[in-house]
């Protein structure tokens, strides 16, 4: 009887452990650039005193595509690792700006999610993250359970830079990080 009980207990334990081992939750929240080769935001050569917007004929430079398969709200934020820098020389942070003017579904019927944008205007980057899109603020996204698969939701972005008239010559760079969080 004693051995029988041990066998039963051992079997139950083994089954439970095997079940735990084989059970995995598939969780998809991804963030990509579209098109992928536009992750470099390159203004090229500019003269002191010049300013320009960086966009294509489509009206934006690139888009962030968020694919989410879980019925939970998600937010997108952006931060910068510091000023545009060339060694010790910098371009002031208020001189290079970003804006998202449109968000929408990449799945038919291509709903507009722009009400999920926090603000539609040129803003400067900060080293601390700024949330600029919240799916909970979008009526269409909320009613769709915040799910954007299979093709995702896109957030279109464009950029502007104004070179100070007394800027020292050189190549300046900075790293921008976009994050989607759920």
């Amino acid at each position: 009887m004693f051995l029988h009980n041990i066998r039963k207990t051992a079997s139950f334990l083994l089954l439970t452990i095997a079940f735990l081992g084989s059970f995995s939750i598939s969780y998809a929240l991804t963030l990509e650039f579209d098109p992928p080769d536009k992750s470099i935001i390159n203004f090229g050569a500019m003269n002191p005193g010049d300013w320009t917007e960086l966009q294509t004929s489509s009206g934006y430079w690139h888009a962030l595509v968020v694919k989410n398969s879980v019925a939970l709200p998600w937010q997108v934020s952006v931060k910068c690792d510091g000023l545009l820098r060339n060694g010790a020389i910098t371009i002031p942070s208020e001189k290079f700006l970003w804006m998202s003017a449109y968000a929408g579904s990449k799945n038919a019927p291509y709903d507009n999610y722009s009400d999920g944008l926090i603000a539609i205007s040129y803003r400067q980057f900060y080293e601390t993250g700024q949330t600029f899109f919240n799916s909970a603020n979008s009526t269409k996204l909320s009613s769709a359970g915040h799910i954007t698969t299979p093709n995702g939701a896109e957030i279109q972005l464009k950029y502007l830079i104004a070179i100070p008239p007394d800027q020292l010559a050189g190549d300046y760079s900075s790293t921008i990080t976009f994050t989607v969080t759920q």
């Binding site: 963030l31 990509e32 650039f33 992750s39 470099i40 935001i41 390159n42 203004f43 090229g44 050569a45 500019m46 003269n47 002191p48 690139h62 962030l64 910068c80 545009l84 060339n86 371009i91 290079f96 950029y159 830079i161 070179i163 800027q167 020292l168 010559a169 050189g170 190549d171 300046y172 760079s173 900075s174 790293t175 921008i176 990080t177 976009f178 994050t179 989607v180």
Partner: peptide
């Protein structure tokens, strides 16, 4: 997350 590099040549 995704990172983008911002560059300009003055």
């Amino acid at each position: 997350s995704q990172q983008a590099t911002f560059t300009v040549d003055v």
